[in-house]
């Protein structure tokens, strides 16, 4: 089951450059939240703060509170590894492990964390691939083919299956369909709609139609601040902020 996310006064830096200015946001459990905004507005940085991926870049810094469910992920003593197990991530470009088979790609999160029960592993791999709507296409070549041999759209669904296999509560998606053709994009969007029953989903997207299609709530970022955050309907039909209106009507960005 998904859990809620609560962000308070979140600031993030690259070196001396402040990329996020005091962001406050609450995302409900099992909701799909879309983050939109022009390039460089901080939306990717924001999601990368939700699973402590931001801090892996040398010279970066984070301040503020992020709660995933009841866990304060930036509290002293919360290991980043633990956080990332609960908060899965799908990246902009499909990034399957090139030397691993399809099976091993999906099983990687469990296997490399010491999970050894083979029978159970088989079940989880099958379940995850089914959830990611990839099972029928790969079930005959699971252990024979490399993850890198799949098409771009299949690779991205493989990456989703890989993230789902560790059974996270939250799924972060950083422009998951931007490198894909319209058919693959459609599949990923359908998938998001099905996955929200079990996960809380945060999706960064440059495609406003996509945000409107998949997300119940939408946040608009501009220059490192969260300008407006509301029901998707409200954002796209009757935004409260002039800057949001300008952006969604295409007057800039």
């Amino acid at each position: 089951m998904g859990v809620g996310i609560e962000v308070r006064n979140l600031k993030a830096w690259y070196g001396n450059t402040e990329a996020l200015h005091s962001v406050n946001m609450q995302m409900g459990a099992n909701q799909v939240t879309a983050l939109i905004g022009p390039s460089g507005c901080g939306k990717s940085t924001f999601v990368r703060c939700l699973n402590r991926m931001h801090e892996t870049i040398p010279g970066t810094k984070v301040e503020g509170d992020v709660r995933i469910g009841s866990t304060d992920i930036y509290a002293n003593g919360t290991p980043a590894v633990e956080v990332r197990r609960r908060v899965g991530m799908v990246f902009q470009k499909p990034n399957p492990f090139p030397t691993m088979s399809i099976y091993d790609n999906v099983a990687a999160g469990l296997k490399l964390n010491g999970f050894r029960n083979r029978h159970r592993l088989d079940e989880i791999v099958e379940k995850s691939l089914k959830q990611a709507a990839l099972w029928d296409e790969v079930k005959d070549t699971l252990k024979k083919k490399s993850g890198a041999s799949l098409s771009g759209g299949q690779q991205q669904r493989l990456c989703i299956a890989r993230a789902l296999a560790v059974e996270p509560e939250v799924l972060l998606m950083d422009e998951p369909a931007s490198a894909l053709d319209p058919i693959s994009t459609g599949k990923i969007e359908e998938l998001i709609d099905e996955l929200k029953a079990n996960y809380t989903i945060v999706i960064v997207t440059h495609n406003m139609q996509q945000a409107a299609r998949v997300a119940g709530f939408t946040g608009f970022f501009l220059l490192g601040t969260l300008v407006e955050f509301d029901k998707t309907e409200k954002i796209f039909t009757n935004p409260s902020d002039k800057r949001t209106e300008d952006y969604i009507t295409g007057r800039f960005g």
Binding site: F91, G109, C159, V166
Partner: peptide
């Protein structure tokens, strides 16, 4: 590729 691995909590 590294981020994909870290992202799984490895």
């Amino acid at each position: 590729i590294r981020e994909a691995a870290w992202g799984l909590g490895i």
